[in-house]
Simulated assay, not measured.
Amino acid sequence: MFKNLFGKKTPQKEFITITLNAKLQPMHRADLADALSIVLDKQNIGDICGGGSLLEDNGEIQECDIEIEATDSSEQAIDHILDFLNNTLSPKGSRLSIGDKVIPFGKHEGLGLYLNGTDLPNEVYQNCDINEVWAEIEKRLGEEGSIYSYYQDSAETALYLYGNQFDVMYQLIKPYIDSYPLCQQCRIVKIA
């Protein structure tokens, strides 16, 4: 290690990459990174230094990264990071990379609700509101999950739900999606 002008050692920095198997818009990834930054500061682990998204061919987000410049990469520091993620958002299939070491993690399952944006009668689009769908799904999920992000293109609007169990989330929202006109012809996809 190098010493600075006053003879103190400069802390060695390592880079940690958190790859979340989550379809998060950049603003939603940034919200998570901001919350993680508080933990990093409190534990003197390091700072968020970047992030990004891997896109599918259609432009939908496949997964996203949060990058940390760490001054502490000890096992205890990694445990603090993983504890935070497990208590906020840690979809199955996620991983943490430091150097050549990869630590798989994740306990949450994901459900993608893809609403048909082209094939329903015009009056459905005129009389229904995606914000109502969002609010009702959040209410029905309760403690079992939450909507973390969304995606919209010319054919569909997707809501990304993450929670304890895919099957439980699906059963909780099924009566609503079966009854609300905007949810007709929707697709349900397991995303984590």
Rank of each mutant, 00 (worst) to 15 (best):
D79F: 12
C64P: 05
G93W: 08
V133T: 04
N86Q: 11
P121R: 05
Y114K: 10
K139I: 00
T71S: 15
F105W: 10
A77Q: 05
P121T: 08
N58T: 09
E69L: 13
E138F: 07
P121Y: 02
G106N: 09
V102P: 02
I61Q: 04
Q76W: 09
D129A: 04
N58R: 05
S94I: 03
S90E: 07
L96A: 07
S90A: 14
K139W: 01
G52D: 07
G117Y: 05
F84E: 06
D129R: 03
I68W: 03
E132P: 02
A70M: 05
N116C: 12
D57I: 14
D65N: 11
G106T: 09
Y125V: 03
P91K: 00
V124E: 05
H108T: 10
I130N: 02
S94T: 00
S97M: 11
L55K: 09
G93H: 05
S73D: 13
T118I: 15
V124S: 04
V133K: 04
N122T: 14
D72Q: 06
D65C: 11
K101D: 15
Y125K: 07
T71K: 13
E75Y: 10
S53Q: 14
R95H: 12
D79H: 13
A135V: 02
C64E: 10
W134I: 00
E136H: 11
D57T: 13
S97V: 10
D57L: 11
P121F: 02
K101C: 11
S74M: 04
A135T: 11
E109L: 05
Q126W: 12
S53D: 11
P104W: 01
D119I: 04
L113Q: 01
K107T: 13
L89F: 08
S73A: 15
L85K: 07
N127M: 09
E60C: 08
L82N: 01
C64S: 09
Q76L: 11
K107I: 14
L55T: 08
T118M: 15
P121S: 03
I81E: 01
I137R: 00
V133W: 01
S53G: 09
E67G: 14
L82T: 12
N58L: 08
S94F: 03
G52L: 05
N86A: 01
N87W: 00
Q76K: 14
H108D: 11
I66D: 07
A135D: 14
L82R: 07
A70P: 07
S97D: 15
I81F: 08
S53A: 14
C128K: 05
P121N: 02
S97C: 12
V124Q: 09
P121Q: 09
L54R: 13
F84A: 12
W134N: 00
F105N: 08
E67A: 09
I66H: 02
T71D: 00
A135H: 08
N58S: 12
G112K: 10
E63D: 15
V102G: 02
N131A: 11
E138D: 14
L113F: 08
N131Y: 14
L55V: 06
G93A: 05
E75P: 04
